[in-house]
Design a protein around this nucleic acid. Structure first.
Lengths: 342, 342
DNA sequence: CTAACTTGATTAAACGTTACATCAATTAAT
DNA sequence: ATTAATTGATGTAACGTTTAATCAAGTTAG
């Protein structure tokens, strides 16, 4: 309705020039107290809102950032709840900085022309693999980015990661503490330096430290999805006499796994213990509730936003380029002390 | 890097006027085949991308829609996975129409000035209550909207709803068919005409049809969240001798409920049967897996987008303003035939 | 009392598009 | 052979801002 009141209208009604109105809005230039209040009055009355397109045309920044999520990964629809929590954190962080978030679920052949098209101020990229096509294209756009959970080697990039190695260590140590020795690992794609790789390193460290030899046959690499976890149960059951516990590198796969084992007749935790990773909110409500490595996803999203905005504003010095967030162990019902397989 | 190549540059390099370039890009006006290909060539070489801000400044439409989600509802953080599936559907629908989606998680005091600020083309609004403040503000913006799961009474509004009454009926009928008579209901806020209200009506119809008297004491109204479901277990346990089944009006509350009952010592389905609503993907993997009323959330999102775009483009006639999507019953492990409480 | 600031405000260019009006050069119709 | 229509292309205003340059009037300094 009132959609077309522009700065010109305000100027006319308030009997000043548009430059003055602009100054009032932005607090720039010199303008007397009375004029300020008169102009503001008119702005109120007319419900004037400055046009973002006109602004961004002028200053080249859009107050728009993108969150880039791989909805489809390796051909599988991403059902990881984890992303939802993250997206919420980002949206929430952004709104406190008067920035809006556009959601982009990238596909394999994604082209990133929308970045320049919309003059995006920056991007938050979730889970990029260093050698992927998308990753290369993202860097090519040249806009400020913050990478999440990517463990990229380039030290110039801004990134936020988890202390994945420690997470892997903690979960494994917990199982060892319960007396388990034959501990299987259910991991997503193992790429050198990637999230799963680091968790695996932590696992190895814990095993070595406790003098337990780790059996490479007990490493199961599977898609990081609930289905992936479910399918893994089939493979794992072949080793049921030699495995007493499994460390799944995400809660979602742990869920699928537990269900898969259940369908085969193996019950968690009595027949086998399971540790997850992420602590998504269902973990607490599952039956059995899931012992897992906890991270604070929502604040991760918020940190990502402020890091991105600092970078955009050029407060480079005020922040480290790489942040590593802590993880911790949350013990619940899915893990119990080792008992000989009966 | 190459961020500043504009239509002018293309025009200069291709030796034509900017008007011609514009015509080539938009397929408007008259321009010879050779010129077209030459211009396109240059566009390719220079990696030119038209500026969305300039365009939207000119034509008043931004190719930007918002999806509005109540992240925080009645003071509770929305942990409903359901929304995530919906958001994904919308994003996916949008990308096929060259529109981008901005994600807005509204708060209680939300102001919608961003709508005019960004010249949004339209909005998809999830779960609005007719008498809410937000709802009023949304209508005031005057932009095209599609309302999801809102069951609004105004027949001029575009909306997509589920056949909630039938859903309520099917779930109840299923339980009755298993021999249950004392069937409790775990519902979110019961507002006349709202989603929960209609599901409840379906419940009543099924009960009446089977000649079972429904006990108003067995209606439990609780927040639609996993915690809400968990807490409900406390209340329900007081009636454990008189309740043999519960129909929860969302899968998330069903999960919380099942866990809550479990902690109290009541096991699903042996001690009590539970039916959910939505069929979020986890329903299939829970232990026990959840009998539930299935809806197709992703396609709901996609339909919402195309409905919105039709409305924006003014193809009013081509579509009904109100779409009701079907639901169906999916039977899993959380419901079993009635047996006397022991 | 003039010169030099300060204050409050204005003018106009520029940002990258689109679309309307115009125009020159062909081609077609009488 | 003149007029009319068509084709291909251009010039330019307009969209809503911001900002640098400018200016008039009032104030202060010497």
């Amino acid at each position: 309705m009132n959609n077309k009141v522009s700065i010109k209208d305000i100027a006319r009604i308030a009997n000043v020039s548009i430059a003055t109105v602009s100054n009032v809005i932005n607090g720039t230039g010199r303008v007397s107290a009375k004029t300020i209040s008169r102009v503001n009055q008119v702005i109120q009355e007319q419900q004037y809102v400055p046009s973002a397109s006109a602004r961004s045309l002028k200053d080249k920044n859009s107050h728009l950032i993108a969150i880039v999520v791989p909805f489809i990964e390796k051909g599988m629809l991403q059902d990881n709840l984890f992303y939802w929590e993250l997206v919420r954190g980002v949206e929430n962080g952004a709104r406190h900085h008067e920035v809006q978030v556009i959601l982009v679920g990238i596909e394999d052949d994604e082209d990133f022309s929308f970045v320049r098209q919309r003059h995006l101020d920056g991007m938050i990229v979730v889970g990029g693999y260093e050698q992927s096509d998308a990753y290369r294209k993202i860097l090519e756009t040249g806009i400020p980015c913050v990478f999440l959970d990517s463990h990229l080697t380039n030290p110039d990039l801004y990134q936020i990661d988890l202390d994945d190695e420690v997470g892997g260590y903690l979960g494994t140590k917990h199982l060892i503490g319960l007396g388990h020795e034959a501990i299987g690992v259910l991991t997503g794609k193992l790429e050198e330096g990637g999230v799963n790789y680091l968790r695996y390193q932590g696992y190895l460290r814990a095993m070595k430290e406790s003098g337990i030899e780790s059996d490479p046959n007990l490493i199961f690499e599977q898609a990081s999805s609930i289905q992936g976890g479910y399918q893994a149960a089939q493979k794992i059951v072949g080793f049921k006499e030699s495995i007493s516990a499994i460390f799944a590198f995400s809660d979602v796969t742990a869920m699928g796994l537990i269900r898969g084992l259940h369908d085969i007749g193996l019950h968690v935790p009595n027949d086998i213990s399971v540790v997850g990773f992420d602590d998504i909110f269902y973990a607490h409500y599952m039956i059995p509730s899931l012992t897992t490595i906890k991270q604070d996803v929502v604040s991760k999203g918020q940190i990502a936003v402020s890091m991105l905005l600092d970078q955009i504003k050029g407060n480079e010095s005020s922040m480290k380029r790489s942040v590593v967030l802590p993880v911790s162990l949350t013990v619940r019902q899915s893990t119990i002390p080792y008992k000989k397989y009966s």
